[in-house]
Simulated scan of single mutants.
Amino acid sequence: MKFAITSKGDQTSNALMQKMKTYLLDFHLEYDENQPDVVISVGGDGTLLYAFHRYRNRLDKTAFVGVHTGHLGFYADWVPEEIEKLVIAIAKTPFQVVEYPLLEIIIRYIDGGKEARYLALNECTIKSVEGSLVIDVEIKGQLFETFRGDGLCISTPSGSTAYNKSLGGAILHPSLQAIQIAEMASINNRVFRTVGSPLILPDHHTCMFKPVNDADFQITIDHLTLLHKDVKSIQCRVANEKIRFARFRAFPFWQRVRESFVCD
């Protein structure tokens, strides 16, 4: 089996990365950064996001597993004290593959140029370059509302515990095939009106965002911030691709939610 390891870059994470690499090579596994069967992320959720985008073109062939060296993460479910156990599991145990949905974003331009397509593991956010965001929201080809406010966040179930949660969005179990739209400080008065609540769309629904006036947007794809000019539309839906996680033991999602947000 081929493996690769990505590190957060701090001293602790780098040391663990080297230790795991040595152990796995001793078990006669092959280190291959270009075509790995398993990618081990050492750091936090941000490190795994980086690994996901690095290997986004081989999601059907690569599975991810995370070791966290800081605060408890939702993607990194092993701790440094368990790396010997994890190494033995990777080397000796057939792992279970768990697939979670991703967000597909397609940006089209006024001049009809080549569209841009992205995949997000956590979320996509849309903001105007200057002033408030004013944008039509269409669901399944029909106008739902005209949004006015700071911006919109479209998240996956996996990303529902991140920025989406801070905006008042719901926490979704990552196995659900859905995406969620949450508002950022919408303007609601006698003239302007939005639904004011997060929307959860199933995988057979597509949402489209169309500029009302300003066509330049600041768009984030997970940790990447991009400036897109002359935007005609932004399309979001559940992607055909999925992220694959290598599971060697149970992944208690609701326990992880409790430990992250409820327990002292």
Rank of each mutant, 00 (worst) to 15 (best):
K2V: 08
F3T: 09
K8S: 06
T12H: 13
N14D: 11
N14P: 05
Q18D: 13
D26T: 11
F27T: 08
Y31N: 06
D32R: 10
E33D: 15
V42K: 01
D45S: 01
T47N: 08
Y50Q: 14
R54M: 05
Y55K: 01
R56Q: 14
L59N: 01
L59W: 00
D60F: 02
A63M: 00
V65P: 00
T69K: 05
G70E: 07
G70D: 04
L72W: 01
G73D: 06
Y75F: 14
W78E: 00
K85G: 07
I88W: 14
I90R: 14
P94H: 03
V97F: 03
L102T: 02
A116S: 12
R117N: 07
T125Y: 00
I126E: 02
I126P: 08
K127R: 08
E130N: 07
L133E: 00
L133H: 01
L133Y: 04
D136Q: 10
D136P: 05
V137G: 07
V137C: 13
L152Q: 02
Y163Q: 12
S166T: 14
A170M: 13
H173K: 14
L176E: 02
I181K: 04
R190C: 11
V191C: 13
F192V: 11
V195A: 14
S197N: 11
D203H: 15
K210H: 02
P211L: 09
P211R: 10
P211F: 05
D216G: 15
T225P: 06
D230Y: 07
D230K: 12
I234L: 15
C236K: 10
K242A: 10
F245K: 04
R249G: 03
P252L: 14
P252W: 13
F253A: 05
F253L: 12
W254Y: 15
W254D: 11
W254S: 06
Q255G: 15
V257T: 07
C263T: 13
